[in-house]
Every structure is written in structure tokens, then in C-alpha cells.
């Protein structure tokens, strides 16, 4: 475990804490895409299939349970909590996310390291995670004013995979970890999708003004 990896996981965890904080304290999920949250549940379910068959460390198992539990909890809040579900921006969260699932399945069936169920589903989870943020980014562009916690949530979510890329570079250079096309390309695409969000987020932070994405 290197520093980049730990920072990446902590940033990812922090993004989820910020989102839960927003939903629980403000009792609102305005500006949050339920579709992106649902895609994350699928990502974790298909990536952590080895949760009960392979043991790496307490940390690894604990984090998998936390990510699974919180992502399912967030979807539950947004779908079924009597107060929160009223605040869901249903009319604006219009991205056709089933299309992303289909694309990822097809790509995982075409490009994978081994053709077995676990490996193909793991590969699917990497492809799906790379594009899972799209419904959320589209929703942000439609939102007139993005509240601070939502902006922070998306920023942290983008930052975590950027830190993972540094972790892969470190492992490749220092631990002579083998070159991994699939996670690395997926991670690069994932981080690249945040590029313009990062630009506007940092600009709004520097100019101390409200975050606004161009429509």
C-alpha cells in the first residue's frame, strides 16, 4: 500500500461522507444524480464479487463493505426516504444510463484479460465506473446553482481516481508491477471526463464565486 493509493481511497471515502452529510443534514438530494448513484452500486457489486472468496487485508475487506453499504444506502435514501425522495431532481436527471451499462457489458465481453465470469465482471465494473459520472455531470450543467457540498462531492470523486493513476505509476516503477492496460486506460478516461469540471471548480474556488458549469 503506497501513499497515493491510501490518499486515493481516503478521498473516495471522503466524497461519500460529503454526499451522505449533504443528504442527511440538508435532508435533500437536489442536484445529485440518482442514475450515477445506481451505476456506482452496480460497479461495487460487480467489482467486489471476491469479497467473501479472497481475503487481502482487514482494510481491503472493510473498505469494500463500506463502499457497498454506503452506495446502496444512498440509493435507498434517494428512492425511498419520504423527505429526501421529494427533493430528487427527477426531471433533470435524464441521462440514458442503461446505455452506459450496455456499452460497458459489450466492451467487457470484447476486451478483457481472461474470459471467466469474475474477470469479465471485474472488467465491466472498471468500464462502467469510468463513465458512471456522466449522468451527474449532465445534471450539474442543467442545475442553475450547484450547492457547495455537491461541487465538493464531485471534485473528490474525480480526484480519487487521479490519485489511483499516481498509485499505478508508483507501483509500475517501484514494485515492478506489470503494465495493466484495462484499469489504467479506464482510469485515465474516467479522470479525463472530469477535466472541464475540475477547471470550473478550481476557477470558482480561486475567484471565490459560485460554481457554474457552462450549459
Amino acid at each position: 500500500m503506497n501513499l497515493f493509493r491510501l490518499l486515493g481511497d481516503m478521498t473516495h471515502l471522503l466524497s461519500i461522507v460529503v454526499l451522505l452529510l449533504k443528504i442527511r443534514t440538508v435532508k435533500s438530494c437536489a442536484g445529485i444524480s440518482l442514475k450515477t448513484q445506481e451505476l456506482y452500486v452496480i460497479v461495487f457489486l460487480t467489482r467486489y464479487l471476491d469479497l467473501f472468496t479472497k481475503y487481502y487485508s482487514v482494510y481491503n475487506t472493510a473498505m469494500k463493505l463500506v463502499f457497498l453499504g454506503t452506495s446502496i444506502g444512498i440509493v435507498w435514501y434517494m428512492r425511498y426516504h419520504k423527505v429526501v425522495k421529494q427533493t430528487y431532481s427527477k426531471d433533470e436527471d435524464t441521462f440514458k444510463h442503461y446505455f452506459l451499462i450496455l456499452l460497458s457489458i459489450i466492451l467487457a465481453l470484447l476486451i478483457h484479460r481472461a474470459f471467466d465470469v469474475i474477470e469479465v465482471l471485474w472488467t465491466f465494473s472498471l468500464y462502467l465506473e469510468a463513465v458512471a459520472i456522466l449522468p451527474q455531470l449532465v445534471l450539474l450543467q442543467k442545475s442553475r446553482n450547484i450547492d457547495t457540498l455537491t461541487g465538493d462531492y464531485v471534485f473528490l470523486l474525480g480526484a480519487y481516481r487521479a490519485l489511483y493513476i499516481l498509485n499505478w505509476v508508483y507501483r509500475f516503477l517501484m514494485e515492478n508491477h506489470k503494465f495493466r492496460w484495462i484499469p489504467w486506460i479506464s482510469g485515465l478516461v474516467q479522470t479525463a471526463l472530469y477535466a472541464d469540471f475540475f477547471y470550473y471548480y478550481i476557477k470558482s474556488w480561486k475567484n471565490r464565486e459560485k460554481l457554474k458549469l457552462p450549459a
Partner: peptide, 10 residues
């Protein structure tokens, strides 16, 4: 060992 290293990430 290889498998262990391979999928030890989240």
C-alpha cells in the same frame, strides 16, 4: 502471489 497483487485494489 500474482493473484494477490493483482486484485488488491478497490
Amino acid at each position: 502471489a500474482k493473484v494477490k497483487k493483482e486484485k488488491d485494489e478497490l
